[in-house]
Design a protein around this nucleic acid. Structure first.
Lengths: 320, 320
DNA sequence: CCTATATATACTCAAATAGAGCACAAGTGG
DNA sequence: CCACTTGTGCTCTATTTGAGTATATATAGG
């Protein structure tokens, strides 16, 4: 071994592979023996692959039979204690998280893997129907306790501000992009399963706040959701999740599914059409009920025309 | 060695440490024997450090005697051929790039390091005085050749669109955030020194387009500039580069230095003050010439009040 | 002292964008 | 036909952004 042996680590690649099925944004998970879901992950072999991304595409293709369309690097995590199976074990794994989008859905063809709606892991992130009840019922009181338990006043103030910025307050509303900030706050407040697993808090402090995942995979998924929610607005990435032809309502439902909020229908259409993101096909969809809608397709040309084409979110006020 | 030996790599941490001196955004570089500048970089020791960032902070502190304020991870590069010293050598280094901001400037106290204005590496990125002459003189004709040399029409169209999106065209203007896209285009078009070094193009194809750097460090720096130019707009990171008290013009000059464009003075002040980013100190600056300006300080409270406080760019039209 | 010049700061005005809603069209199932 | 559902066109207003005018306060030089 070389004198640099102590610096030697393994690179793990984790992928949040996302698809949208029936208005439900889903992520491909590996169901493990431990009971927890994990994101598909594999080692990076620097001899076999020229880039990290090509390494990722290869083993994802082999393991999941999926052909990834859009792939984007999220973040590289090196935290000890967040990636070890057993607390005693010395972690030498650095994991690079990726976001990948794919159109294919339905049952996963790979053994041991399945599609899971991502709000199972983040029930407080889905504001489409209403404010998620878990917020008032569980999270807000628990965070109020977290503020109250602060060692001194300055620390309490800081905690209070952080809670308000993450989860909104009287004046400030819900920011759907702060997925990671919210998860990290809950983790650091010692309220979720991973906090106890990583030895940050006592087991009886834990609340039932969504399903836990292996390693730091719930954190990677939070990063993925946040990135997708943000990116959607200035890059036409939603269309990676849509079939070749779709109605504007279907498109809107996908955007709503991802962002977790309801949009104003007319304004959504205006923004999408004014930006030249779609073009009509002339055909109409088979109407389940109601007036049949025109089928649209993505206009690839926008990528050349506009500097930052994306689906701006035209929020719909709650209760309308 | 374990059976995973083939997956074992070294992690290198590279940092673009940025400061602004006299309206010139600067980056700390290590002057190497090879003549090229390099970003400070060092190995990551997973046994000594719990996180990648703490590892970075430690050796940067040791090597440069700088106390880093703001630190942000940029991207993890694993490309073979972009990080090797010699083309024959088998790269087993994955480098994690970081952006760090620091107020301290003046001469660097660390031996072998010095501050360099970053536009030395990207002369086409500084539009403050005028459109950089290198664009019309060198870059535009070279890229026109790149388009003309495309193997077929579809490829030529794609190249033309890419050039226009990166460098602007008749209708679309200059997007100061596309630093990385522009660098990558020049690299892939085989026009810059690194392209030849990495064996992508012949040596006589290379044009004098800014100073080259070691490894993929110019790419990391491009990523850093792009990130900072973008982040500035929705996070108050500029203040990490400002002294405790400053005039609004000094603040504007710093923002202009980083973004590489001129701003509209009155609108800049309106945006900064309306957002509550600064508060007057009551004192006034010693006037070199002209009416003395009030000294302001950063209002830390905005971090608690506003969801995304940042310095919006109120562009000044060229020629005014 | 007066003027040219440079900077600071207040305020106005128009264009573009975003947010909310009304009205009506075109289908389905009873 | 009616109740209901979805689609589509259009209006109205508030806010934000982009650009410019006007005026205040300093220095330097004749």
């Amino acid at each position: 071994m070389s004198e640099h042996a102590k610096h030697v680590v393994e690179i793990g690649l984790s992928a949040a592979i996302v698809s949208v099925v029936d208005d439900s944004p889903s992520v491909l998970v590996v169901h493990t023996n431990a009971g927890d879901d994990a994101l598909p992950f594999g080692p990076f072999d620097p001899l076999a692959h020229r880039t990290l991304e090509s390494g990722l595409r290869t083993w994802v293709g082999e393991q999941t039979y999926l052909d990834l369309g859009y792939v984007e690097q999220l973040y590289t995590f090196g935290d000890r204690g967040r990636h070890t199976l057993n607390p005693g074990e010395n972690a030498r794994v650095v994991s690079v998280g990726y976001l990948a989008l794919t159109r294919q859905c339905g049952e996963s063809k790979a053994p041991g893997t399945l599609w899971r709606g991502w709000y199972r892991f983040f029930p407080w992130e889905d504001w489409r129907d209403a404010k998620p009840p878990i917020l008032d019922a569980v999270i807000t009181p628990a965070l109020a306790r977290f503020v109250a338990e602060a060692p001194d006043k300055a620390s309490a103030d800081a905690r209070r501000d952080r809670v308000r910025l993450c989860f909104g307050g009287k004046d400030s509303g819900w920011d759907e992009e702060k997925v990671l900030e919210r998860y990290e706050l809950l983790y650091e407040a010692g309220l979720i399963a991973e906090s106890a697993r990583d030895g940050r808090t006592a087991r009886d402090h834990i609340l039932p706040l969504g399903d836990r995942m292996m390693f730091d995979h719930r954190r990677i998924l939070a990063t993925a959701i946040a990135r997708l929610r943000g990116k959607m607005k200035y890059r036409p990435v939603v269309f990676e999740l849509m079939p070749p032809a779709f109605t504007l309502l279907e498109l809107q439902r996908s955007v709503e599914a991802i962002s977790g909020i309801r949009l104003h229908k007319q304004n959504f259409r205006r923004l999408v059409e004014d930006q030249g993101l779609v073009e009509g096909t002339g055909k109409v969809a088979a109407p389940a009920r109601g007036r049949p809608a025109e089928l649209f397709r993505f206009r690839r040309e926008v990528l050349r025309e506009r500097p930052s084409p994306g689906v701006r979110l035209a929020r719909q006020r709650a209760g309308v």
